[in-house]
Design a protein around this nucleic acid. Structure first.
Length: 148
DNA sequence: TAGGCCATCTGGTCCT
DNA sequence: AGGACCAGATGGCCTA
């Protein structure tokens, strides 16, 4: 949980709001009720936003689990996860396309078993496929992510 | 210590 | 009106 500096900012802005309203006819009680309701709405919105972001993070975690992450002891960042998912999907799409070009299932499986190893994958973000990895890996992971 | 990544708060906009 | 979504701001934590 983060410290509540921002809450202090919120409180002060609400104070300004309340002061501007209560100056004329509005009773002090009315002003304080408005202030209280505004604060409650804000807190509720904050809680909703927290839940929403937690849901998003859960989705990222699920995506991390299905995306290749060989030997990466460190967890992929959100950006890296998206880039890797994109590369992975494109690679699988290519594999399916290749399958149509091979006559027998056995030929196709043999072809991919020979080349489908970790060293043929670039490590997710922006790394170019090493030329030594061979034409298969280059075809498989030709995608280059945009730079920031 | 700087830079990257992240969680949270916040106000604005859009949608129902 | 209220909720969902988004982007900007801010500050904490971690690592090179």
């Amino acid at each position: 949980m983060k410290p509540c500096k921002l809450n202090h900012r919120m409180e002060s802005s609400l104070e300004v709001d309340a002061q501007s309203r209560s100056g004329s006819g509005c009773a002090a009680k009315c002003g304080s009720e408005r202030l209280e309701n505004a604060a409650k709405r804000r807190l509720a919105a904050n809680a909703r936003e927290r839940r929403r972001m937690q849901g998003l993070n859960t989705a990222f975690d699920r995506l991390r689990k299905v995306v290749p992450q060989w030997g990466q002891d460190k967890k992929l960042s959100k950006y890296e996860t998206l880039q890797m998912a994109l590369s992975y999907i494109m690679a699988l799409t290519r594999i399916l396309a290749e399958a149509e070009r091979y006559n027998t299932e056995k030929d196709w499986i043999n072809f991919h078993c020979e080349h489908f190893h970790q060293e043929n994958y670039p490590a997710y973000t922006g790394q170019k496929v090493a030329t030594e990895a061979g034409p298969y890996a280059q075809r498989l992971f030709s995608f280059q992510p945009d730079s920031y």
